[in-house]
Amino acid sequence: MVDIKKITAKNMTDKEFFFGHKACAGCGGSLAVRLAMKVFGEKTFAALPAGCMSAVGFIFPQMAFLNNAIISTFPGTGSMLSGMRAGLDALGFHDTHVVGFAGDGGTADIGLQALSGAIDRRDRIIYICYDNEAYMNTGVQKSGLTPYGTKTTTSPAGKNLSGAVTHKKNLFEIIAAHDIAYAATASVGYPQDYLNKLSKAARVKGTSYIHIYATCPTGWGISTETSVSLAKEAVDCGLWYLAEYENSTFKINRKLTKPELLKEHLLKQGRFKHLKDEDIKVIESERDRKWAQMMEKWG
């Protein structure tokens, strides 16, 4: 992998494969799709289940993808990708990529079994989960990847409860437990790291999975211009992490650098505005537990 030229902002293709879509201003998910398509190039076949990116890209008669793209069934992204790969191989189009872009709900809840099956078959597909931590497309409902304390329409904050009562599902390790060829986590706040992981995924012979933390100004109650900086801050204060899994080994790409930023980071977001000090303590202790475990096992 050493001899492969790094893709950067300066040398990446000028082609835009995901353009003119109707995503909200400052959308992190559409940035994740745009950059991924720029790395994979035009010989890419995409499948998108119900979710923001299919809702904003395929508004008839608009088609914001320049390459082949299709809306899959909500639970069937993984199986659809397997089928597309099999079809392409049968037609002799081996020099192609098959990629799926699903949201956090479409991956961690609804599409989990199809994804698990696709990884089990070891198909040469790339699955990208853009994680905006709730079902944003349908109006901010709690998903399996919604973190503790988040205010959503199905986990409202009030006198009795302060938002979601469960912690974020540990999806990255669930995927890695399949002994997948390549899995990684990324953040739109660290775009170069994401580009490197995409290039790696494009060259993997088996299944690869990238979980990218994608901000959602509309659902998170943040101003649009802070979309990228907040995604960076989430990694710096330890609410998200950059890691990789390949050759059956975990690797942390970035250590926890600014743990003290946590409270400030949370209170910047509308979805966490209601949090009291004791709720922040719960989030902090969960973060510390998670990081201690990661450093011990993977560090």
Binding site: A9, C27, L31, R34
Partner: peptide, 11 residues
């Protein structure tokens, strides 16, 4: 430096 180019959601 093209950071803006890299980070524009809309291309």
């Amino acid at each position: 430096c093209y950071q803006c180019y890299l980070l524009c959601s809309d291309g």
